[in-house]
Design a protein around this nucleic acid. Sequence first.
DNA 1: TCTATAGTTGAATAAATGCTCAACTATTCA
DNA 2: TGAATAGTTGAGCATTTATTCAACTATAGA
Lengths: 124, 124
Amino acid sequence: MMKTLANQDMCNCNVIHQDIVDLVTGKMPNDEVLADVADLFKVFGDSTRVRILSALQESEMCVCDIAVLLNMTKSSISHQLRTLRQAKLIKNRKVGKVVYYSLDDYHVGTIFTQALAHVGEGQG
Amino acid sequence: MMKTLANQDMCNCNVIHQDIVDLVTGKMPNDEVLADVADLFKVFGDSTRVRILSALQESEMCVCDIAVLLNMTKSSISHQLRTLRQAKLIKNRKVGKVVYYSLDDYHVGTIFTQALAHVGEGQG
DNA sequence: TCTATAGTTGAATAAATGCTCAACTATTCA
DNA sequence: TGAATAGTTGAGCATTTATTCAACTATAGA
C-alpha cells in the first residue's frame, strides 16, 4: 500500500516480486524482537567475552581467575562481565571478597555448539 | 610456570584457584577457534543483518526485494549482503540483471531459534 | 547502439565500543 | 583501627563499523 510505495522510493527501484515481499513481511518476527536478537549476538561478538563464556562452560570462576586465565587486567574483565551479566548470560555469587561467576542460561551451550560447528566446517 | 607468573603480574592479583585455572586452560578451545566464533557472532550482531537473515529464512529474495522489505537503500543492503556472504551464511545466483540471495548454512536456523528463545524468556 | 535498471564498490562520516588508567568500595586479617 | 586485596566504575582514547553518496559494471530491451 502507501508504505510499500514509500519503500520503493526509498530503495530507488521497482519491486521485483511484490508477492514475496508481502509473504515475508507477514511471516517475519517484528523489528523489536529482531533488534533484541541482534543485541544478544552483539554480546557474543567479542573474543574476550567468548573466551569468558567458554571458560565458564568448564567451571565457575572468580574475576581474578579469569583475568589470569586470559592474561588481561581485572578491570577489563570486570567490564566485560558486567556486559555479560546485563545480557543475563552469567550470574554471580559473592563469598567474602571473592565474586564467583557462572553461566546463567541453558541456551548458551547450544548456541555455542552450533557456532563451533559452523566455524569447524570451513576446515573439513 | 613462568607464563602463569607473568599473568599474575598482568592481572595484579594472586591466583585464587590455580587448580581451576589449570583445568579450564586444558579444556578450552584454542584462542584462534574462539576468535572465529566471535567473528561469526559479530556478523549476527547487527539488526540489519539479522533482519536480512530472518527474511531469507522465509524465502529466497533479490536485493531490490530486501531493500523494499527493510525500507533501506540498495547500497546499504548490498554492503551487508557482502558481509553475510563472506561469512558463508548466504549464497546467491544471478538471473539476468537480478541477483537472488538465500541461506547457505543449516546452522543459521538453529542458532536463530536459540537466540529467539533466550530473548523470549524475558517476557514470560 | 543507446537507454534504463539491478546491483556493486570505495571513500567519507558519524556512532558504537573495548581497553587503559585512576579512583573508588567492600571485605579480610592482624 | 589500619593495611592489603578482590572487585567495580567512569572518563578518555583508539579502533571498528554501519550508512550515505557518487561512480561504476552488467544485463535487458528498443
